[in-house]
Design a protein around this nucleic acid. Sequence first.
DNA 1: TCCTCCAGGTCCTCTAGACAACCTAGAAGA
DNA 2: TCTTCTAGGTTGTCTAGAGGACCTGGAGGA
Lengths: 205, 205
Amino acid sequence: MGKAPLYVRIERELRARLDRARPGDVVPAESALAEEFGVARMTVRAALNALESDGLIERIQGRGTFVRQRPEPRAAGTLMSFQDQVRRWGRIPRSRLVAGEVRAASAEEAAALQLTAAAPRVVSISLVRFADDVPLAVEYACFPPHLDALLDLDLETGSLHRALHERGLRPTLGSSRLTAQRAGADSDLLRVPADEPLLVETRRL
Amino acid sequence: MGKAPLYVRIERELRARLDRARPGDVVPAESALAEEFGVARMTVRAALNALESDGLIERIQGRGTFVRQRPEPRAAGTLMSFQDQVRRWGRIPRSRLVAGEVRAASAEEAAALQLTAAAPRVVSISLVRFADDVPLAVEYACFPPHLDALLDLDLETGSLHRALHERGLRPTLGSSRLTAQRAGADSDLLRVPADEPLLVETRRL
DNA sequence: TCCTCCAGGTCCTCTAGACAACCTAGAAGA
DNA sequence: TCTTCTAGGTTGTCTAGAGGACCTGGAGGA
């Protein structure tokens, strides 16, 4: 065991410490850990990279490193960004922006987002998702108005999930509702018959 | 776009090349790529790390880097089952059946399932999903009455997705709605604060 | 009081090397 | 012929920095 790479041994040591730590605790700065273990900072970073990809810690530039609430289910189905999911199949992801605007919120949307303004507004984004130029899904996204910067992004090539993550919305856990219904209104966008039986999954992430 | 980090731009360039490459092809050595892009070898390695974690390449010490066999895109993009998802990310999946019954359908459910009977009924299944005994999601499933055989299955150990697949419901395409809201009613089952901010994705598969 | 600016701390990116571990192919020897 | 070993190429690990981007809190001014 003494011949494992340094960064692996440091990772193990930190993992043991994290078991005893509480969510939100501050992890010592990289420079401090480097000095403590007597290694270069890049070596500490290699260990922290593994812990971060396991969802055990969260690193925020300019602030520090923190113990996470709980492991982040990164590769779990819909939690993965569409692009990552498609690429993992070995297909080429593509998105077409159908609409992106700030508009008045419906009563249902205002309730779900807990918007209390007199005339609540939402950022509404519609995308058609392709894999190898085959349309796979239509995505209607709806966010509070303070996220209107999302509209400035290049959503056809960029990752919506990544943009959300950078803004503090972390898809960590959730409930989901699964039903069976027919394609209906989206059938033309997906190029399938309107009565095609589909699964419908309402997922709270 | 020109202000992305070097290793990200290199990653994108390599990703584009990989799309045109064939499985088993040799990827140029790190030192060669470093010279080609005019960067340090560590920078090339950062790009390759991302490609490797995406499963696009395989690195073998002493031999070289190779284009990976693309994962077989199973049955036209079938969504991974919960169990596969959890196992893939190295955890032990478990489910607890909260309720499984045939009951009267709500008006909303009857409309979604296009049930036309005078007193429409649905098969209703509620599961709590665990990964390593940590509750991750609550799943409310709702199906037309002719699928009542689902209730005879051992849903705590078996796969609901697989059972549906065998009955002809293929989650292949769909639309989804993505919003941000709070945990709310499911917070006790998930053991998180009710005001925990979560992403909500309504997905039509 | 309120706002702006700045300093210090943190993580992020990148460099230019060095040596180790490992694999392959070909040379040298039995 | 067969085996062994060595040379060279590759990825893996690690160093000791440097500057940039970003956040926070406090000093100073309006």
